[in-house]
């Protein structure tokens, strides 16, 4: 639905050119909720602004619904943008317009009649749960309500695509959850394709189908969310995953922890698994078969992409051969096992 074909964006900064985006290719399939995550300054905002050409890439192509936006005339671009809704971190509602009038804006811009507008907005108010706020001004609304208005406004022109620019970053955790649920709901009900950028792994964890990590203007990892959580490939991805599952660094859990192996030290394993009740029998089986003990340092269950995922940090106590066998046994049964360090 959205396709970035090797796009690059260079800004002329004070101290020479800055490469905000460096040869990025991404494909957001139809109906997908696609998350782009990265630290601040990674180029996320620039990337999402390229999806409706608020920012024009220096080179490359941007295809939305099969249409190459780069080739369009200004008038054609404006009509293409009506098919691409966008919401923002700071909502960007007009303070002088009521909720109703804010949602009506894109329809007014498209020259719709007032009766058409009236008909279009009633169901939108219902969808975002703001029927009773119809005539309120933005200043009278909470952050979450403002974002709901912005979502309704973005949906008013019945777009095929919704772009979310840090849409929950200015909201408290509870409101974030309700906005994410609303987005998920819209995605299901309307089959809307959503491209979102965020620095919060929780957003990716709860609603995204696919995820890409952006670092210094490059996509360094791209995967479906499940595989991303189970087997992050890059160090940055591992950091994001650890943050999302609230994993404590192993050095905090055990003061005997060390990075490298020394004679007689035992490995600390990080075991990741998907689905319930899989791991416990495997752990006990491994213990029995290989004659080792598992010392559980940390355990956590998380819901990722509406699947249950478990994360375990264990240190393995036993003969060296047994420890190796246990590791191999767990790996053989499709658990993701990673040695994060050693304790002695």
């Amino acid at each position: 639905m959205i396709q970035f074909k090797s796009i690059s964006k260079t800004f002329q900064g004070g101290s020479g050119p800055v490469h905000a985006l460096d040869n990025i290719s991404l494909h957001v399939p139809e109906g997908c909720i696609y998350g782009v995550i990265g630290s601040s300054g990674a180029g996320k905002s620039t990337l999402i602004r390229c999806a409706n050409l608020l920012e024009s890439p220096t080179s490359g192509e941007v295809l939305v619904a099969g249409q190459n936006l780069i080739e369009l005339s200004p008038a054609e671009l404006r009509s293409a943008r009506r098919e691409i809704g966008m919401i923002f971190q700071h909502f960007n509602l007009l303070s002088g317009r009521t909720v109703f009038q804010n949602i009506a804006l894109p329809l007014e811009l498209a020259g719709k009649s007032s009766s058409d507008i009236e008909n279009a907005i009633a169901p939108l108010l219902e969808l975002v749960g703001l029927v009773d706020k119809r005539d309120s001004y933005p200043a009278q609304l909470s952050g979450g309500q403002k974002q709901r208005v912005a979502i309704a406004r973005a949906l008013a022109s019945q777009p095929k695509v919704l772009l979310c620019d840090e849409a929950t970053s200015a909201l408290d955790p509870q409101t974030t959850v309700s906005i994410l649920n609303l987005l998920k709901d819209i995605n299901k009900k309307l089959g809307l394709t959503i491209l979102l950028i965020t620095h919060e792994m929780d957003v990716v964890k709860s609603i995204c189908d696919r995820v890409a990590i952006l670092s210094q203007g490059r996509v360094i990892e791209e995967n479906d969310v499940e595989s991303f959580f189970v087997a992050p490939q890059t160090e940055l991805a591992r950091e994001f995953v650890r943050a999302a599952i609230h994993e404590k660094p192993a050095s905090d859990i055990s003061h005997q922890f060390r990075q490298g192996y020394v004679e007689g030290s035992r490995p600390v394993l990080r075991i990741t698994f998907v689905g319930q009740n899989v791991v416990q029998p495997l752990i006990t089986q491994a213990a029995r078969l290989c004659q080792v003990d598992f010392n559980i340092l940390q355990a956590d269950i998380e819901t990722v992409h509406s699947k249950t995922m478990g994360f375990l940090m264990v240190d393995v106590v036993g003969e060296e051969q047994g420890v190796q066998d246990a590791q191999a046994f767990l790996q053989k049964h499709d658990l993701q096992v990673e040695v994060v360090g050693y304790v002695s």
Binding site: G85, F88, N92, P106, L109, A110
Partner: peptide, 9 residues
Amino acid sequence: EAAESMGAT
């Protein structure tokens, strides 16, 4: 920017 994203002239 929001208005531009809606296709405003």
